[in-house]
Design a protein around this nucleic acid. Structure first.
Lengths: 219, 219
DNA sequence: GCACCCTACGTTGCGTACAACATCGAACGG
DNA sequence: CCGTTCGATGTTGTACGCAACGTAGGGTGC
């Protein structure tokens, strides 16, 4: 999600995407040790592109590098998480409000489809699939952020909101909080359709407040 | 290339610090082309650590990498600058307000010294030294940010507020704006001394508004 | 038995060589 | 004379080898 995706022939790029995906999906748990040689062999590359990928992941904050002791997937404490929500609350409502000025009919349709699908998958019952929500949620927020047309704002968020934490915790939502969260998405779409940025921003603020409560309680 | 040079610290760290300083101080102007070999030879290193430094600078947004075409110092448009101020306005006042809760007498003394020195150096007359303000200003804001004890907030700002732009523009302040700006620093110290975070945050908001006006007008 | 040192190992950090790619210039053909 | 193509050249991208560093384990001295 960084703005510097344009470099590096396939190898380094692939290592970066692969590692990021593995971390975000939880295949590499927090605190896991990442050896350069191990990763390189697993991807069929040399250490060089792997090393570059790790450097960039470290800049994003997804991994931590210790001198001569390798890389570890970053661990987040409750305080870290709280600080992250402070930043999100300061920036994401503003971004959402701005999105109202740029949103097109096609964007609305796409966001609406995502929101509705999430409500289907999140509804209690045999068809409930909390894991599938993860990707959809990421997509929804990413689209919203892009619609703000505020690159600096997006960059600030991207380097702090390490979605692995937020992403993998849908299972920890209690039924009421989950229902609220999914309803917020739908309400945001409604607000954007009405062209009311203030409304959309306010809903996002609710959305984050609700999420923060779940996260903080969980730990 | 001698073994004594290497002892000073990790090569890539030095390359990173050196390059960042050169960009922030304007020795490397915006848009300047950065060749890996050229930098490597200038620093007496191989391309490897230089390359790592460039990768990290790209993640910070200070340079842009184009595939097989090298790195360039990032150029900022007026829109970019405006977006950066949006982020600063969303985060820095909050950070300043939080600093009030953690500030110690020693911190206050250091901040006060910085603010007073800046007022001396900024005052019109033969002793005026606008260039010296640059470093002091960076230091002041960095200390303030650290006092907030909010790592996520600091990280979000660090990856967006590319001070090169802000830093080198003290010469473009008109006398009134400059006087206001320096007075704000002093007032922030006063607010912190009074333990009034709201006041401190409000001053920071003024400070940024004033700076934004200067920047936007300038371009 | 305990503490300390010292050695052996695995890891990262850096240097160097080679390959792939992009750009620019000149020669050729229309 | 202009456009196109092919080669020359410089750059970045990748692989690999060596050295430095940190760590752990065994051995020795007390």
């Amino acid at each position: 999600m960084t703005s510097t995706e344009r470099r590096a022939g396939r190898a380094s790029e692939r290592a970066l995407a692969d590692l990021r995906e593995a971390i975000l999906d939880g295949d590499l748990p927090a605190g896991a040790h990442l050896g350069e040689v191990e990763i390189a062999e697993r991807l069929g590359l040399s250490r060089t592109p792997v090393r570059e990928a790790l450097t960039r992941l470290a800049a994003e904050g997804l991994v931590e590098l210790e001198a001569h002791r390798g890389a570890r997937v970053t661990r987040f404490s409750r305080e870290d998480l709280d600080g992250i929500f402070d930043v999100r609350l300061a920036l994401e409502p503003q971004a959402t409000a701005r999105a109202a000025a740029h949103v097109t009919a096609a964007d609305l349709a796409a966001l609406d489809a995502l929101a509705r699908r999430m409500q289907e998958l999140g509804a209690p019952g045999p068809d409930q699939d909390l894991d599938a929500l993860v990707g959809l949620n990421r997509d929804f927020h990413a689209r919203l952020l892009a619609l703000a047309h505020a690159p600096a704002l997006a960059a600030a968020l991207a380097n702090v909101v390490h979605t692995p934490v937020v992403t993998r915790t849908f299972r920890t939502y209690d039924p009421d909080s989950l229902a609220r969260s999914l309803a917020h998405h739908t309400e945001i779409v409604a607000a954007l359709r009405a062209g009311d940025g203030d409304w959309a921003g306010a809903v996002m603020r609710c959305h984050l407040g609700n999420a923060r409560a779940v996260m903080v309680e969980q730990r």
